[in-house]
């Protein structure tokens, strides 16, 4: 069981995500008909927000791993960097894709190049894509790890920027709807429950994803060391 904890977490998270999808479409209360242009599409919210939340966790892991590699040359740090980038890409794409579908229904356009949160989050996802593809395009080495870690460190600047974006420039994205204090919160109890299940499921899923990704990277490193040894390297 202990050896399979990553798979268990991934499976549990996936089941939770599917449950969230079901609850979001079938059980969560409808929003007021005059509150949204497309009230039915609002149900995407229960996937969109938890996916973005999980992506932020992954980007935090990416940042931590990048810092650990860059400053301490920690192999664990590099595995965290790789896992954070892959998990950030997976959840970032879910958040971006679901946001585009929702945006097309609600705003009449899937993307708005002037919305700051949309753009900074899209850029974070592109950064994760760059790191994932970039790592595959380069031979593993100190130079490539240093370069990609630098991008991981600088890229994290976008996370707080994305978080505060709607507080400063509320263009398309609404301001905070959870934990916004007395005047801003707009979630009913049942809505909050589905959102909570979604956030928990995505969090469990992302932890499982990161653990599996780290294990794969570790195996890749062992394989490379074995090949290097066979080649007669030191």
């Amino acid at each position: 069981m202990a050896g399979r904890s990553a798979e268990v977490l991934l499976g549990l998270g996936f089941a939770g995500i599917m449950t969230t999808l079901f609850l979001g479409f079938q059980w969560a209360p409808s929003v007021a008909i005059d509150a949204f242009e497309s009230p039915a599409a609002q149900r995407i919210f229960y996937w969109h927000v938890p996916a973005a939340w999980a992506a932020f966790i992954a980007f935090a892991v990416l940042f931590t791993g990048s810092a650990m590699w860059f400053f301490k040359r920690s192999p664990l740090g590099w595995r965290l960097h790789v896992a954070g980038a892959e998990a950030g890409l997976a959840c970032g794409l879910i958040a971006v894709w679901s946001g585009c579908v929702w945006g097309a229904a609600e705003w009449g356009t899937p993307w708005d190049w002037t919305d700051v949160r949309l753009n900074t989050f899209g850029l974070l996802t592109l950064l994760a894509l760059f790191l994932v593809l970039g790592r595959q395009s380069q031979p593993d080495g100190v130079e490539s790890r240093d370069t990609f870690s630098t991008f991981g460190l600088f890229g994290f600047v976008l996370v707080p920027f994305t978080y505060i974006a709607t507080r400063i420039w509320e263009i398309r994205h609404p301001g905070p709807v959870v934990g916004a204090g007395d005047d801003g919160g707009s979630l009913s109890g049942d809505m909050a429950i589905v959102l909570f299940i979604g956030a928990l499921s995505f969090t469990i899923f992302i932890i499982g994803h990161i653990l599996i990704s780290m294990r794969i990277t570790s195996l890749e490193q062992r394989l490379e060391q074995a090949q290097h040894h066979i080649d007669g390297g030191k």
């Binding site: 753009n119 899209g122 760059f130 593809l133 395009s137």
Partner: peptide
């Protein structure tokens, strides 16, 4: 390397 991915 896919650095141009960041051009957006």
């Amino acid at each position: 390397v896919f650095i141009r991915l960041l051009l957006p």
